[in-house]
Computed example of a mutant assay.
Amino acid sequence: MDFGSFLKSPEIKVKVVTYRDIFQDKAMIENRFGEDYRDRSAVIKLDSADFKQLNVKKGDTVILKNSFGTIVVKAEESGYETPHRGIAYMPNSPWSNMLVSDETGGTGVPKFKDISATVTSAKGQKVTEPGF
């Protein structure tokens, strides 16, 4: 065993904002259980500085965790020029929904736009299978 195996992976806190994606919607219509839908849905887009802090590369898996759930998704850089450190983006999907609180504050509408979570590297782990 090497010394690095005892070190904890870097962890960052993010606010996850969900969004709709037309290409993801098309993939869902074609095959909700297909690989294309999973590839477009089980993803988190991070600021390049957050990407570096986590020490991950495009396509690496990361663990997102909060008090409502834990998921493994693929990481991508957002590509936005304006820095947005600590703010991450995910398509609205079964994966992002696993992190949403069931508390609605009496409105009946869950809070999809302001999800707090921690992100760590999940190198070698597979994307979480959704429970359709």
Rank of each mutant, 00 (worst) to 15 (best):
D2V: 13
D2Q: 12
D2S: 14
F3D: 11
F3N: 02
G4K: 07
L7I: 14
K8N: 12
E11Q: 10
I12N: 05
K15L: 14
V17Y: 01
T18S: 13
T18H: 00
D21K: 05
D21Q: 04
I22P: 00
I22R: 15
I22C: 04
Q24R: 10
Q24G: 05
K26Y: 11
A27W: 10
A27N: 09
M28P: 01
I29S: 07
E30C: 03
E30P: 02
N31W: 07
N31K: 13
N31S: 13
F33T: 14
E35T: 09
D36L: 10
D36R: 14
R38Y: 02
D39Y: 11
S41H: 07
S41C: 11
S41T: 01
V43Q: 00
L46V: 14
S48P: 06
S48M: 07
A49T: 09
A49P: 00
A49S: 13
Q53L: 11
Q53W: 00
Q53V: 02
Q53M: 13
L54I: 11
V56H: 02
V56D: 00
K57G: 15
G59Y: 07
D60N: 15
T61M: 01
I63E: 15
I63H: 00
N66F: 14
G69I: 02
T70K: 12
T70I: 10
I71A: 03
V73A: 07
E76D: 07
E76Q: 12
E76L: 09
E77R: 08
S78K: 03
Y80P: 02
E81W: 08
E81A: 12
T82H: 04
P83T: 13
P83I: 15
P83Q: 12
R85G: 01
A88Q: 04
Y89E: 12
M90V: 08
S93C: 04
S93Q: 07
S93K: 06
V100G: 10
S101E: 12
E103F: 05
T104C: 02
G105E: 15
G106M: 04
G108H: 10
G108V: 03
G108Y: 06
G108W: 08
V109L: 06
K111M: 10
F112S: 05
K113S: 11
K113C: 00
K113N: 13
D114F: 12
I115L: 03
S116C: 04
S116F: 09
S116Y: 13
T118E: 02
T118H: 15
V119N: 00
Q125G: 02
V127Y: 02
E129M: 11
P130F: 14
G131F: 03
F132E: 14
